[in-house]
């Protein structure tokens, strides 16, 4: 098994929101960055941007009392049928990359579809495939 981790280089981010729009288009079929599973935190000063997105650490899957989060095609996904909307995943995410989004039933997180990676105009986004072993956890492999 392996996970696919989409990685952002904050220094290359120019804040255009194309990743957010792509995510909302591909995963929700709408033009609305507020529904995106990738989020650009903008610091309007010289500091620039910080991109927040799930690193597929799997903590949410471990903590979910309904076992509604599982690894599918390299990304942890929330099963809408099994999710009881308890919000524990949102609370336990160590990097605050799972959100309640307006007018979306379940919490939203990155499922590693990688659509944003190819649309990013500055190549600030890339992805890594990481081999996954139950005992030793995540082990880096490009």
């Amino acid at each position: 098994m392996s996970v696919v981790r989409v990685v952002a280089d904050d220094k290359k981010c120019v804040g255009c929101e194309i990743c957010e729009l792509t995510c909302a288009n591909v995963n929700f079929g709408v033009n609305n960055p507020k529904k995106s599973a990738i989020y650009i935190s903008r610091l309007a000063g010289p500091e620039g941007f910080h991109v927040v997105l799930c690193n597929q650490c799997g903590r949410c899957a471990k903590e979910c009392p309904e076992e509604a989060i599982a690894l599918v095609n390299g990304g942890y996904r929330i099963d809408e049928e099994r999710c009881t909307l308890c919000g524990i995943c949102v609370e336990v995410c160590p990097i605050e990359a799972i959100w309640w989004r307006p007018n979306v039933k379940t919490p939203v997180k990155c499922i590693s579809c990688k659509a944003c990676v190819s649309n990013c105009p500055t190549q600030a986004l890339s992805y890594k495939e990481i081999a996954f072993q139950v005992k030793s956890g995540l082990r880096g492999k490009e």
Partner: peptide, 19 residues
Amino acid sequence: RVREESCFACPLRCKKYHV
């Protein structure tokens, strides 16, 4: 120049930040 920025949904990042 310290960084660059784009407006919404623009790939061209023509705005430059000066300090």
